[in-house]
Design a protein around this nucleic acid. Structure first.
Lengths: 168, 168
DNA sequence: CAGTATCCTGTCCGATACTG
DNA sequence: CAGTATCGGACAGGATACTG
């Protein structure tokens, strides 16, 4: 959160939010995926105030999601490009698009994921990479992993039955 | 964002963030998925201040992600349960977990998605529901949909070649 | 073009105290 | 148990002016 940053150290969701939790961060990443890389790209695309853009770009660079790269020497100019870590945020973004389109688009879809060759609309769903099975409850659930805290372990039984009504 | 709520009306990501953009919102949803439903559940699990919890629950109910349901009459008691819209947020959450585990878990995974029956670890990936193909660039990309604004349409060609370097 | 420097407002959030 | 009420701090974000 803002100041305290409670020991959410246990949860990968909380930890992810430490890096992309601000509104602009995700929107900046979204733009980076569409090819934006320069300060001005982001600014005119997003309509963000320049000081905020500076701040958000800085935290994204510090988090290792963007890389600040010099692309000109005279004068010194920098661009911000997605790192590997940043690029792998794409599934989250696309899942968010799918969800938003499904539930918050009364007038139809404004942007969507399509096959780059055929142009056919894709319907993003989460599956297990190995088996290809649809990742949904109750077939799958959250469980405490090796590095779980005691508290986490208490909430997500490592592997045994859950209390009824609980759906991970 | 905070006050202005710029006309991000075009983008489903921005629109989604209007509803789950605050830190606590996502964390509350995460807890709701694990079975938390009462005020006290959320409060003790999250360590959130009661007034904030009230506010966040209220906005989540207003957004239609949680439903406030009376479960006792004398005295009046309410619980907060996921709606269908809220439940379908799960893929986003799980994608976020996968990403967080991959990139922000130096000491190993604290929580993870597993097969509820066998206990086997799942590896969440995004695919196209119909074809089962892995949803990644450059095979897939973002495109302007039917309800796209002119601005969106300019940025995401509805369906033709993109400028080189752009990866949706 | 790519930012930096100020100033300001809104509000997220925490802490605490109180109520039926 | 399930909140409401109030206070105060930190900071996200906006607006604007300025610089190499």
């Amino acid at each position: 959160m803002r100041h305290k940053s409670l020991n959410h150290t246990g949860c990968p969701i909380a930890r992810s939010l430490e890096h992309v939790g601000e509104w602009w961060s995700i929107l900046i990443l979204r733009d980076a995926f569409t090819g934006a890389s320069r300060f001005d790209d982001f600014q005119t695309n997003l309509g963000i105030a320049p000081n905020m853009l500076t701040r958000r770009l800085k935290t994204l660079v510090e988090s290792g999601l963007l890389e600040k790269r010099r692309y000109s020497d005279k004068p010194a100019r920098y661009e911000y490009v997605l790192t590997n870590k940043g690029r792998e945020f794409r599934p989250v973004l696309w899942a968010l698009i799918a969800w938003g389109n499904e539930h918050f688009a009364p007038e139809g879809e404004s942007i969507m994921v399509i096959d780059a060759v055929t142009g056919e609309r894709a319907e993003p769903v989460l599956v297990d990479r190995r088996t290809g099975r649809l990742l949904q409850a109750p077939e799958f659930r959250i469980a405490a992993g090796p590095a779980a805290s005691e508290r986490m372990r208490r909430r997500h039984a490592p592997f045994n039955e859950r209390k009824p009504g609980a759906q991970s």
